[in-house]
């Protein structure tokens, strides 16, 4: 009985009842310490819209660069917006932010110095010294002064570069500033193979049209670019990269086409010994055979053949709007 009275006495205190009804943690427990890395804070005015934060963010889509289209503000601002429901509060975005003062601040962070290459890159920018005309337009536009001059040559300091791509827009020489995608090299190889293979097969299909081409005349044809591009997009789903690859590949492509007219062949077997990759073989039943996969298109067989069995054409390509222009020209090589 005494214990019951003690309990009643103990719990009937006013302070106790107050605490029971309005329980609350103390403020100092709920407060965040000074060094706590909270969600990043964005100062819109400082942003140079370089996209370093979006490239560096370890999550897939926590930071998005958005454009302010508010009519009341005269200047259109581009600034990063952070989605708190995805952000992992690592503070990496504020570490890589190159603007001074920083656009994104997040707790107390390591002050980044020039010697740290931090932005995880998928793209690298390289200046081709052979094509560069040293107009230095890129140095003026570069927001982080990554383009340096050394021995009268311009080069990009990869440790400073933030991959904003502004230099490519001002560069007057096509191909002087190169974009290299380092991430999906294998897929790019596949795309290049696909492009060459399809173009070669197109030419071979239309072989009958330019069989009897003169040495001085040329044959022209064109094919649409769309189906080829769609095939490439299946391998890499990046519109820019595929367009870039197509332009570079097709502009440079210089195909050599070798045709064989087997009716004229007399099985002299001169070409068999000459072929450097042993693509041409001979056996009694089939006569002289050429293995297309092994063939290097070196044109040695064309030069050796005394009966005009082998014919050799140069094919060039050019992109114009939505079509690929194909030009076939008979070889100018002299024959022995």
């Amino acid at each position: 009985m005494s214990s019951v009275i003690w309990y009643l006495y103990e719990f009937a205190k006013k302070a106790w009842i107050d605490k029971f009804t309005t329980a609350k943690s103390e403020k100092e427990i709920m407060d965040k310490p000074d060094r706590f890395r909270d969600f990043p804070q964005v100062t819109k005015e400082n942003c140079i819209s370089c996209g370093a934060c979006t490239a560096a963010c370890p999550t897939p889509s926590a930071i998005k660069l958005i454009r302010n289209t508010d009519a009341t503000i005269n200047e259109i601002l581009t600034f990063p917006e952070i989605d708190n429901s995805i952000c992992i509060r690592c503070g990496f975005c504020s570490e890589v932010c190159p603007s001074i003062p920083k656009t994104i601040t997040c707790g107390e962070n390591h002050e980044i110095t020039e010697e740290f290459q931090i932005i995880p890159t998928e793209i690298k920018y390289v200046i081709d010294d052979y094509l560069c005309i040293r107009c230095k337009k890129c140095t003026k536009v570069c927001p982080v002064d990554a383009i340096e001059e050394q021995d009268n040559k311009l080069r990009i300091n990869q440790k400073k570069c933030i991959n904003c791509g502004k230099c490519t827009k001002v560069c007057p020489v096509k191909g002087s500033l190169k974009i290299i995608y380092v991430n999906n090299v294998e897929e790019q190889k596949q795309v290049i193979k696909l492009i060459t293979n399809t173009l070669e097969s197109v030419v071979e299909e239309n072989e009958y049209q330019f069989k009897d081409l003169d040495k001085n005349s040329i044959f022209r044809m064109q094919i649409p670019i769309k189906p080829l591009k769609d095939k490439c997009l299946e391998i890499i789903n990046m519109e820019d990269l595929v367009q870039d690859l197509l332009e570079k590949m097709i502009d440079r492509l210089n195909l050599r086409v070798i045709t064989w007219d087997m009716d004229k062949c007399n099985n002299c077997r001169l070409c068999v010994a000459e072929c450097p990759s042993s693509a041409i073989t001979y056996n009694k039943n089939d006569g002289v055979q050429r293995d297309i996969d092994k063939c290097l298109r070196c044109s040695i067989c064309y030069q050796t053949c005394p009966f005009y069995v082998v014919k050799f054409y140069n094919v060039r390509f050019l992109i114009e709007d939505d079509v690929i222009l194909i030009t076939v020209q008979s070889s100018q090589l002299s024959r022995s």
């Binding site: 060094r35 890395r37 992992i88 509060r89 690592c90 503070g91 570490e95 707790g107 390591h110």
Partner: peptide, 17 residues
Amino acid sequence: GNRVNMGWNIVGGVRMD
């Protein structure tokens, strides 16, 4: 700067002194 997932190490040292 954080309780659980600290984000404190980096190759070549630590992020904050």
